[in-house]
Simulated assay, not measured.
Amino acid sequence: MIAKFRGQNLTFAIVQDLGAAIVTGTYSSDKPFPIEADLCKHYGASRSVLREAVKMLTAKGLLRARPRQGTWVEPEESWSLLDPDVLRWILERKFSLPLLAEFTEIRLAVEPLAAQLAAARATPAEKAAIKVAIERMYAAERGRMIP
């Protein structure tokens, strides 16, 4: 087993490692996904652990697996871009201005209504905490710290 995976669930660790490798281009339609036996050996994992990791990556839209036929990397259009892991892996790769613009559009569509609902439903204590947070942001912008 690889040292960096000790102390955490092996299936989760394999998903994280392979997911990041797929999203950053280590594996693609041009660079085939390794066979199960090689991955088991590489991670020191059983076939059932590896198959569970592949199922999780398939659910995220990154892979397509067929028994006795192999596993392929899906095109980016198939990836579940609302999955937090996929989003994190995408942000780990090279900066993309179009992707940043898309995230900004989504935030502009969702956040104003979310803020309105939060303000309408907030208790006085929650509103006071929001006010303190805003004051701290303004202070930080001016280079000051408020405890």
Rank of each mutant, 00 (worst) to 15 (best):
M1H: 10
A3V: 07
A3W: 05
K4D: 11
F5H: 15
R6M: 07
G7S: 02
G7R: 04
Q8D: 01
Q8F: 00
L10H: 07
F12A: 11
A13T: 06
A13F: 01
I14P: 07
I14L: 06
Q16Y: 00
L18V: 03
G19P: 01
G19C: 00
A21I: 02
G25S: 03
D30F: 03
F33C: 06
F33A: 07
P34S: 03
P34Y: 00
E36R: 13
E36M: 08
E36I: 08
A37P: 00
D38V: 07
L39K: 02
L39S: 04
C40F: 01
K41G: 00
Y43A: 01
S46N: 04
R47V: 08
E52P: 02
E52I: 08
A53L: 06
V54R: 14
V54M: 11
K55C: 06
M56C: 05
M56L: 13
T58K: 08
T58V: 01
T58N: 03
L62H: 04
R64W: 05
A65V: 02
R66H: 09
P67H: 08
P67Y: 05
P67D: 08
R68F: 12
R68Q: 13
Q69N: 07
G70D: 06
G70E: 09
E74K: 10
E76R: 12
E77N: 12
E77R: 15
E77I: 10
S80A: 11
S80T: 07
D85I: 03
V86F: 04
V86D: 12
R88V: 08
I90C: 06
I90Q: 14
E92S: 14
R93E: 13
R93V: 06
K94I: 09
S96R: 13
L97Y: 10
L97R: 15
L97S: 12
L99D: 14
L100K: 15
A101D: 14
E102P: 01
F103A: 10
T104M: 10
I106V: 14
R107I: 08
E111Y: 04
E111G: 00
L113V: 06
L113K: 13
L113Q: 13
A114L: 14
A115K: 13
L117H: 11
A119H: 05
A120E: 15
T123R: 15
T123Y: 01
A125L: 09
A125F: 00
E135K: 10
Y138I: 10
A139R: 05
A139Q: 04
A139Y: 04
A140I: 04
E141D: 10
G143H: 02
M145I: 15
I146D: 06
